[in-house]
Amino acid sequence: MKILLVAALLCALPLSNAMCAALEAPRGDVVLTVTGHIDNTNAGNTAAFDIAMLQTLAGRRAIMETPWTNGATEFDGPYLKAVLDAAGAHGKTLRIKALNDYAADVPVEDATDYETILALKMNGKPMSVRDKGPLFMIYPFDKNHELYNEKYFSRSVWQIKEIEVVD
Rank of each mutant, 00 (worst) to 15 (best):
M1E: 15
I3H: 10
L5C: 10
V6P: 10
A7F: 12
A7Y: 10
A7I: 12
L10C: 15
C11A: 13
C11H: 03
A12C: 00
A12N: 06
L13H: 08
L15C: 11
A18L: 08
M19T: 07
C20R: 04
C20G: 11
A21W: 04
A22M: 04
A22P: 01
E24I: 07
A25C: 06
P26F: 09
P26H: 02
P26L: 06
R27Y: 06
D29L: 09
V34A: 05
V34E: 03
T35A: 15
H37A: 14
I38W: 00
N40H: 08
N40K: 05
T41D: 04
T41V: 14
T41H: 00
A43L: 01
A43W: 02
A43M: 05
G44R: 03
G44L: 11
T46S: 14
T46W: 01
A47M: 04
D50K: 05
Q55V: 03
T56A: 12
T56P: 06
A58K: 15
A58M: 03
R60P: 04
R61A: 14
A62L: 12
I63P: 06
M64H: 11
E65H: 09
P67I: 09
W68K: 06
T69F: 11
G71Q: 09
G71W: 00
T73V: 05
E74L: 07
E74F: 00
E74C: 01
E74M: 12
D76T: 15
G77E: 00
P78L: 11
Y79L: 13
K81F: 08
A82V: 01
A82F: 04
D85L: 09
D85I: 00
A87N: 08
A89N: 04
A89W: 09
G91R: 01
K92T: 15
R95T: 12
I96N: 08
K97Y: 01
K97A: 11
A98N: 10
L99W: 00
Y102L: 12
A103K: 10
A104H: 10
V106N: 10
V108D: 02
V108C: 05
E109F: 13
D110C: 01
T112C: 06
T112W: 13
Y114D: 03
Y114E: 03
Y114W: 15
E115K: 15
I117P: 05
I117V: 12
L118V: 07
A119P: 03
L120Y: 05
L120A: 00
G124T: 02
P126L: 15
P126A: 14
P126Q: 12
P126S: 14
M127H: 01
V129A: 14
V129H: 09
D131F: 08
P134T: 02
P134R: 10
P134S: 08
L135I: 08
F136Q: 06
I138H: 06
P140Q: 03
F141Q: 00
D142N: 13
K143S: 13
H145W: 06
H145F: 00
L147T: 01
N149Q: 08
Y152E: 03
V157S: 06
V157D: 04
I160F: 03
E164D: 14
V166M: 11
D167E: 14
D167G: 12
